[in-house]
Design a protein around this nucleic acid. Structure first.
Lengths: 202, 202
DNA sequence: CGGCATACTAGAACAGGTTCTTGTTCCTGT
DNA sequence: ACAGGAACAAGAACCTGTTCTAGTATGCCG
């Protein structure tokens, strides 16, 4: 009885082959998402393309939503680390946040199908995906707060600003997916929200 | 050819029996949503409970999302017309908006399963549901702008404020559904967004 | 009344996400 | 090397939203 734990069980570590499978799965999902959006990411085809059995796919990602939210976190991570490697241009917080969010928006909307798949997955996420969703939000919050403070000190309300802006950002993306506003409106509305939230932040 | 139109075709009018069916369907959907949320609203059971064939259900509401968004619009309409019949209490725009949104939030969260079903449907809505979704948003915007102006004149930015607040409101509901924040946090975050957006509005 | 389009019923059929079953392969500790 | 369990493959099976089919009922126009 004693010493229950990490002996025979997998625990946390993955073999190289497993990292490989996981990566192939994510790549297949991204490719399919890019081709036809959320509904075109079919689990049977993801499995086939990544050369794993359907059951194995479900062992790695317990649902389609998990898979896509994971892929989104992965994408944002890349973008975020690219950002950290440079100074965000702009004199004011407003300018810097506009720069960052425009870059993020543009980068995502360059591939509308992929964006649609990711946003839709974020929206469909229930409590079982909380951890993955939190990772995505944390990435975005980090980018926004970094832009707010520029090279200055952190403000006490920065996190709150970032939260509201992120909410608006997602909501506008959904409105776009829902055909209620155009792609151009997305950016116009986000920009206006930035000015509204960050007014008086010279 | 001439005079195409409302002769034999159904056009817009519904017989009493049809209004009745439609109402029974919505009621059945609401009951099921209240029982177990979005996933418990199963189209076969809605059909059975409302005494119509599955095909007929789909004639009235072309998808589960249409059905639930419609139900939500119906609900908000009741709430909105109740609001219009009284004066919103509060000295400042902030107080009045807080009053209205808290009432709306509380009213919805009194039945969490029902709320979950409706919000999830709103999020899942694609372009084909744009009209119904627009109706819901318009109801909410109306309530918020009415609260902002109180008995005063309409401000030029009221619609924008209402839009941002509504985005935050929905986003916080989703965060709650996604298990990322608690029911109490929902209200705290919305309140803080109201103050942020409406600051300096005495 | 006789057509005739439309609405409706009952139920099968289809589609894609998810789960389950059976047999095989890989890894780990001894 | 080997026993035993975890991971995997292949595919059937299940569930629920959606669509389709065949037959029946209903209302309407001549």
């Amino acid at each position: 009885m004693a010493m229950a734990g990490t002996s025979t069980t997998t625990a946390e570590v993955e073999t190289a082959a497993q990292r490989d499978r996981r990566s192939r799965i994510v790549q297949a999902a991204l490719a399919l998402a890019s081709r036809g959006g959320y509904e075109d990411v079919q689990m049977r085809e993801v499995a086939e393309r990544s050369g794993v059995a359907l059951g194995t796919l479900y062992r790695y990602f317990p649902s389609k939503v998990h898979l896509l939210v994971n892929a989104m976190a992965h994408d944002l991570e890349r973008m975020s680390s690219r950002l950290q490697r440079r100074t965000i241009p702009g004199e004011t917080a407003t300018e810097r946040v506009e720069w960052v969010l425009e870059k993020a928006t543009r980068s995502l909307q360059k591939d509308p199908n992929l964006t649609e798949a990711m946003i839709r997955a974020m929206m469909a996420a229930d409590a079982s995906v909380a951890v993955e969703v939190a990772a995505v939000r944390s990435q975005m919050s980090g980018m926004i707060t970094a832009a707010i403070r520029g090279d200055g000190p952190e403000g006490p309300d920065d996190a709150e600003y970032a939260g509201v802006l992120q909410d608006v950002w997602f909501a506008r993306q959904i409105a776009w997916l829902g055909g209620r506003i155009s792609s151009a409106d997305v950016w116009r509305d986000i920009e206006s929200a930035i000015r509204l939230v960050l007014r008086e932040h010279a």
